[in-house]
């Protein structure tokens, strides 16, 4: 959707494409939702212009929907050789609510649970964007599911530039990081965060992933504590207001595991963090080893 950002028609197009809260669009409604669930497409302006040209504005939403369904049909036949496919697979992270919708609309999409409350799908590039790998394709890809996930994570690592990890703050008052990769997959980088910031692999990092293309994090150690509230606020607000929301909670991740830290609004406006027992124990262990 980057091509359409800021254009007056954006609202119309977004409403036409809004996954799963979409308004009824007649006969194409179901087909559109399934297409959207299975695929993620870049709609370039020339393409949209062509499909809107000569159409009564009252029917623009239907025209866009029909175009999406048509592109979806094209993309489904857009398959690569297994070796090429493995080299291009990328992980896409979904929060609980969008994962539920995905499972209902496109139950055949291959999905994995790698962190509590999150699922990962595998996206393969198409001419117009990305399509999600289906269960039925496993055999033709010739690899067990864990190998596909490992390949996708490896591909994501390879396309994460050295300057992608940005220090947001690094003084005595706080330590926090953000990602800036501009490929729409920053939330997926939660799964490789200990590799991107290896100096904190043992303590782990706490990250906010409110939307598909956003991740900010702080190390799980004393200097990172000041950032927790900011992370919680951004997670809570961002998941309510950003396009392609993922989660309003925070996630702790290290090389040894993951945990979800629930975020709920409190009466005083400061978000309340529900630290899981496992993380409290981890903190005590770090303190005992002088790492806190």
């Amino acid at each position: 959707m980057t091509e359409s950002a800021g254009h007056p028609l954006l609202a119309l197009i977004e409403s036409a494409l809004a996954p799963l809260g979409a308004r009824p669009m007649g006969a194409t409604d179901e087909a559109l939702l399934v297409a959207y669930a299975e695929l993620e497409m870049e709609l370039v302006w020339t393409d949209l212009d062509a499909c809107l040209h000569g159409t009564d504005p009252a029917h623009w939403a239907d025209a866009v929907a029909e175009r999406v369904v048509h592109l979806a049909a094209e993309a489904r036949t857009d398959t690569a050789e297994p070796a090429d496919a493995l080299a291009t697979l990328l992980p896409v992270l979904w929060g609980e609510s969008s994962a539920r919708d995905l499972a209902r609309r496109a139950p055949d999409v291959l999905a994995f649970s790698q962190a509590p409350g999150l699922i990962t799908t595998l996206a393969a590039p198409t001419v117009n964007g990305r399509r999600f790998v289906q269960r039925a394709e496993l055999e033709s890809l010739g690899q067990p599911a864990p190998a596909l996930v490992a390949a996708a994570l490896g591909n994501l690592r390879a396309r994460t530039g050295e300057d992608a990890v940005q220090m947001l703050r690094g003084d005595e008052a706080g330590l926090s990081y953000g990602l800036a990769c501009d490929d729409g997959l920053d939330s997926s980088r939660l799964l490789i965060l200990p590799d991107l910031l290896p100096q904190f692999a043992e303590q782990g990092l706490v990250a906010a992933i409110p939307a598909r293309d956003f991740l900010v994090a702080a190390p799980f150690c004393r200097p990172g504590l000041a950032a927790l509230r900011g992370l919680a606020q951004v997670a809570h607000d961002g998941a309510r207001t950003m396009p392609q929301p993922v989660s309003g909670d925070l996630y702790w991740i290290s090389r040894s595991g993951t945990a979800r830290i629930g975020v709920s609004p409190a009466a005083d406006g400061r978000p309340h963090l529900d630290l899981p027992q496992s993380l409290a124990e981890h903190q005590a262990q770090l303190a005992a080893r002088g790492l806190w």
Binding site: L168, R169, G178, A180, G230, V234
Partner: peptide, 16 residues
Amino acid sequence: AEQQEVATMMMALVRK
């Protein structure tokens, strides 16, 4: 400092 970090995260969103 905590509210400053909130602002830092908010600025990260717009800078992105």
